[in-house]
Design a protein around this nucleic acid. Structure first.
Lengths: 229, 229
DNA sequence: GTAGTTTGTTACAAAAATGTGACGAATGAC
DNA sequence: GTCATTCGTCACATTTTTGTAACAAACTAC
């Protein structure tokens, strides 16, 4: 069973290289030079994953990602963003937008392949109707509604963002620094321990409503969202 | 057991420098000034890794890499590309097809050695999805999960680092000093016997979960990770 | 065999990391 | 303006980690 991957990248050379690396690994690869082309190919056949360059002619990769994530038919296709190092600050936005991972250029093909495999393995954690379900949790990002064991629960803005980020990136450890970047946003100078406090608040709320422990501490590293231990 | 490395580089000075650095580290080094020469040497004996200059007379490094990767006999040889900084901007940008890693000139020998070691070790040891499997062990670095005989096992930060290092560098003896450098980090002043204690802790945990002995003592030298004895 | 090294093992205390409650500035609704 | 909420920070409690010393066991050379 070979997964199909759509590469959206304007520079032919890099595209060529990507195609080459991917096909060696047995992926069924298609290419588009811009978003318009990409849309046509997606319409023809839904790819299992999209490799999306950040900088694209006409529509930027980020806008394209947003559009894909808004469309009912395409919103479950995982996206890996390719960003140049200078654009790194933008990875925040990228993840917020719905990209499932990002890879910073220059990167080694092996790294890319590993990321692809990881994302593909994760499968969709959002069910078709856009609701994240994991453990006793149920998050509807459209209505910003969270249920724990079927009870509606309120979260403050940051609590919600943090919970949503963790819930949509389970099984993976994030350092406090990463969480500050991804959840709080890049430019802040906030104490890392603040993360601890917010984690504590989340845990309290979840526990209060009868959820099993979902947020786990990884000593010396950070936190991880996981259904069972 | 020393790894053999083929250096493909047209500038004699750089070649000389590379040979010197590599041999200090105990690598068995061979050199070629162009791709033609390189092919002959590869035919004679397959190297464990190729250091390939991006700019070469006649055939460019990238083309040569592609060719190697297409050939059934040579496609599994890891390649590290050497690229000049000026070239990085344009062509390289992200990928060199087929290369497993890249190093930008000018580079420190230390960095190069590190890259070489990384590429060499990730050969057959890491399965495609980035999970290290060896013996009863299964280490997922993303989730920082370790399973021993399918049971999830907790490790402290240093335990984890040490285990990960050893598991990704099997079949090779490391002195306490080396382990302190690689696992603890260079600048520490820690008693060498500390390594013994951590090794002991690892062994205990592994044994407790039914693993066969994986960490072996090499009397008078250090420790070695190995699946069977 | 013995003496001298090297390594295994245990216990303990210092250090580091994390959990937790409280406080107050900032914000926004009214 | 008041009031309630949010959320960053601090201080302290608790837990976990980890370096070290001390001694036992294993190994080596002779």
């Amino acid at each position: 069973m070979s997964n199909s991957i759509l590469v959206v990248e304007d520079e032919p050379e890099i595209r060529e290289m990507l195609r080459y690396s991917l096909e060696i690994e047995g992926f069924d690869t298609r290419e588009a030079g811009d978003c318009h082309e990409a849309e046509k190919l997606i319409a023809k056949r839904t790819p299992d994953l999209i490799l999306l360059d950040w900088m694209l002619p006409n529509i930027s990769g980020i806008k394209f990602a947003k559009r894909l994530k808004k469309n009912e038919l395409t919103k479950d296709i995982p996206i890996i963003m390719l960003t140049a190092k200078a654009e790194e600050e933008n990875k925040v936005k990228g993840l917020e937008t719905g990209a499932d991972d990002y890879v910073t250029k220059p990167f080694s093909p092996r790294e890319l392949i590993a990321r692809i495999r990881t994302v593909l393995r994760r499968g969709p954690m959002t069910s078709p109707d856009g609701i994240v379900k994991i453990g006793a949790l149920e998050i509807n990002n459209d209505s910003r509604n969270v249920q724990v064991n079927k009870q509606v629960v309120d979260f403050s803005p940051i609590e919600y963002k943090l919970l949503y980020f963790l819930a949509t990136h389970p099984e993976r450890v994030y350092s406090r620094e990463q969480l500050l970047t991804f959840v709080w946003g890049g430019e802040t100078y906030i104490d890392e321990r603040t993360v601890d406090v917010q984690i504590l608040r989340l845990r309290k709320i979840l526990a209060k409503h009868g959820s099993e422990p979902l947020i786990h501490t990884v000593h010396g590293v950070g936190y991880k969202f996981m259904e069972k231990k």
